[in-house]
Design a protein around this nucleic acid. Sequence first.
DNA 1: GTCTATAATGAGATAGAC
DNA 2: GTCTATCTCATTATAGAC
Lengths: 212, 212
Amino acid sequence: MTISRPKPNPRSKTRARLLDVCRDLFNERGPDSVTTAQIAATAGMNEGNLYYHFQRKEQLLEALFDAFESAVQQTAGAPGEAPELIRDYLAGWFRTMWEWRFFYRDGAAIFRLAPNLRARLQTLSNEGQGLVDQALQQMCEAGFMSPLSPAERAMLITNAWIVSAYWIDYLRAGRGVTEITLDHIAWGARQVMHIFLPYLTQAGRSLAGLEL
Amino acid sequence: MTISRPKPNPRSKTRARLLDVCRDLFNERGPDSVTTAQIAATAGMNEGNLYYHFQRKEQLLEALFDAFESAVQQTAGAPGEAPELIRDYLAGWFRTMWEWRFFYRDGAAIFRLAPNLRARLQTLSNEGQGLVDQALQQMCEAGFMSPLSPAERAMLITNAWIVSAYWIDYLRAGRGVTEITLDHIAWGARQVMHIFLPYLTQAGRSLAGLEL
DNA sequence: GTCTATAATGAGATAGAC
DNA sequence: GTCTATCTCATTATAGAC
C-alpha cells in the first residue's frame, strides 16, 4: 500500500492565492501557454511549493472549474421567478463569461489537460440552457414575446448561447481586438439581444430597454 | 554570409502528402497535440525528412493557411452576382469550415505557433464578411429580404458569422458531440438560416427553400 | 530526397532538507 | 508549508551518411 503524503489544507490562503493568480494568467494567455513555473513565480513562491498544493496541473484546472461552476449557477439563476430586466440578466452572463473567459476560449487545451472536465462542462451547459429556456417561456406567457414553439425556443437559445460563449474569442480572432474592455462586453450583450429582437412584443421591447 | 541549404521543391509530391496528412491530424486533434514525429510517421517517412521540407512546425501551419485562404475566397465568392440559393451558399461555407475546422477551433494554439497568421486570419475574416454583406444587400434589393440599414446588416452578419465559425466547437464543447457528421453540418446551416428568417420576405423564404 | 543518429530545450513532476 | 535540487520525458530541430 502507498504511503500518502500529508494533505494540504483545502482552505489554505496560499492555495486560494495560487488559484487567483492562475485564473488571471489563464484568462490572459491560456492554460497551455502558462507554465507551472510562471504560476508559482507570479504567486511569489517556488514551483515545489505549488506542487505541494496541486500535485498536477490538471488539479489546478479542476479546482478552478469548481469555482466557475458556482459562478455560472449563480448567474443563470439570477432572474429568479420574475425576470425583471433582460438587459441586466444578459449583462450578468457576460460579466461571468468575462471573468472566466479561458473556459470559453480554450476548450481544446483544457480537455487535453483535464479530460474529466469534458462531462462536467457539458452538464453545466445543459443546465444553463435549461434555465434560459424557462426564462424565455415565462417571457412568452407574460406577453413580452410572441408565443414560441419549443423547437423555436431551442433554435433561439442555441444561437444566443453560441454568440455569448464565443463572443470574446470572436473579438480576438475575427476583429483583432487585443484588449477587451467593458464596452466590448456591452456590445456582445447587444448582439445577443438582437437575436431575440424580432420576437419581442412592444411590451417586451420596453422591458428590455430597447424602445427608441 | 550564411550558406543556404538546397531548397525543397515547392511542388513536390512528398510535400503535398505531408500537408494532407497534417491537415487530417490537425483537424482531428489540434496542432499542439500533434507532434512532428507523428506527422512524419503517418506520412510514412522519417522525421528528418519532414524537416527537409518544413524547417519549422510553423511553416507547416503557414503552408496550410495558404490553402485555407484559397478555399475561403472561393467559397465566399461562390454566389457571384446573382445568388441563387441561400441554402447552397451556406452549405458551401459549412463544408469549407468542416474541411479546415482546426483553423476555427484552435486559434490560440495556432497564433502561438505561427504568430504572423494572426493578421492574415483577420484580413480573411474581414474580406469574408464584406462579401457576405454584398450578398445580403443584393437580397434586399431583389426583394427577398425586407430593407435593412447598414447597422442592421452588420449585426446580422456578425451573429451569423459567429454561429458559423464556432458551430463545430459548440457541438463538441456544449453538446458533447465527438464525431461530427454531415447531419451536424446541415443542422449548423439551419441554425444560421434561422438568424435571417425573420427578415426574409415570402419570396425570400421560397428562395431559401424554407416555405412549409 | 530520405534516412540515422543525436543535440537542445523546456515542461511537468518528485525527493528530501529546512 | 516552503524551499533547492534533480529527474524524466516529449518535442523541436540539426548534422551528416546514404
